[in-house]
Design a protein around this nucleic acid. Structure first.
Lengths: 221, 221
DNA sequence: GTCTATAGATAGATAGAC
DNA sequence: GTCTATCTATCTATAGAC
């Protein structure tokens, strides 16, 4: 504090560590999602922030830890969205459809997240496995599915032999593929799965598919 | 031809171009699938073949063209498998289930293919778009689905409002996600989607899901 | 905390002899 | 067609002044 006129937060280039960290994470998210882990350049990330490469190493330790931090934040976003979910007042069919739509909407709105998860799978989830935060993050959606499923199965409405994890996989598969694989699918089959004009069609298809599966007449089984 | 004893194919290190190309493609497929496009090393690919890096550039021109050639061959395999498919003698329900199982089995048995497609999506399918071979490869499965779907819809058995491309997306989504995302899914939810003990469970789940969706009672719609 | 400069390793690509 | 040797660029990471 060399000057009394100086406010706690200096003007222009700030020294707010939290803010600098957040800015680095924002840019790193874009850059990793755009180019992949190996394709991303620390230089490029630094150039697009108001800080320097030296600071990235200072705050995060290295490229690997930076990527892990990016993943942790991205997974935090969907976990938070799932925690907002309130479907206890709905009947099982409506509740499942609502939950499926949440995943549909989230994946559509978070293209970077989808790419990061694809990249992390190429790396066999090594950063998740090594991250204490991510290993313990859990999934609020799973608890919700478990409760809805129990109610639906008890009433005899749901006839399918699935648990919450399987159902979550089914819903995620549809929503994830539609976004993640839209480039190869579009190039090979000439259909853009994320065309806004077909959005409601696919959103309904997902719900119809899940409900049909859960409630299918299995008398012949 | 300096020696009459020399056979057309010399011993030991061969000069068979087709064979050398195929060997490079084999190793490159593994290396690109393992490490991603940017993570893969041309040096590493060369070291694992009986030829040299110079030959890779000689035959393929560069890393980018090598990756394209790898993709072209991988897509050729699934196209060939689809062409083998013979379901014309089955009723629509059995035929659709058979087709879904073909995709399920193929994706499970070609882990490298799944990884290559994920990688290509990170690159927004730029190699497919630039490849004349891949742009025109089509999908025999789509033609089959189209015929089955028409038969099922005409007889009133199939009630769903989908076309062949949508149905193909639905089937692919389930099969692709199960393999491609098994690492992050397993790390986060503690379940290995490719555990052999659960293989039949998921194979049946896929068929049940698709059939339930196609044949659901839509009286209330 | 922030900067410039640079170390040290390694990548893709090619030259040129045979 | 095949080899060794190497160019040129660029990457992650860090040293050291302020």
């Amino acid at each position: 504090m060399t000057s009394v006129e100086e406010p706690a937060r200096p003007r222009g280039r700030t020294r707010d560590a939290a803010r600098t960290r957040a800015e680095i994470l924002d840019v790193a998210t874009q850059e990793f999602a755009r180019a992949g882990y190996d394709g991303a350049r620390v230089d490029e990330i630094a150039a697009r922030t108001r800080t320097t490469k030296r600071m990235i190493y200072y705050y995060f330790g290295g490229k690997e830890q930076l990527f892990t931090a990016v993943l942790e934040r991205a997974y935090g976003v969907i976990r938070d969205a799932e925690q907002q979910l309130d479907v206890e007042h709905l009947d099982p069919v409506a509740a499942i459809r609502r939950l499926a739509e949440l995943t549909f909407d989230h994946h559509e709105q978070h293209l970077d997240f989808i790419r990061l998860v694809s990249i992390e799978n190429i790396h066999e989830a090594e950063h998740i496995v090594a991250s204490e935060k991510l290993a313990a993050i859990g999934s609020p959606a799973l608890d919700v599915i478990r409760r809805i499923l129990a109610a639906g199965q008890e009433s005899g409405l749901f006839t399918a032999d699935v648990d919450a994890v399987d159902l979550h996989a089914m819903i995620s598969a549809f929503c994830f593929f539609r976004v993640a694989n839209r480039h190869t699918f579009g190039a090979l089959f000439g259909r853009d799965l994320t065309d806004p004009a077909r959005r409601e069609h696919y959103r309904a298809m997902l719900g119809d598919m899940v409900i049909a599966y859960l409630t299918a007449d299995r008398a012949e089984d």
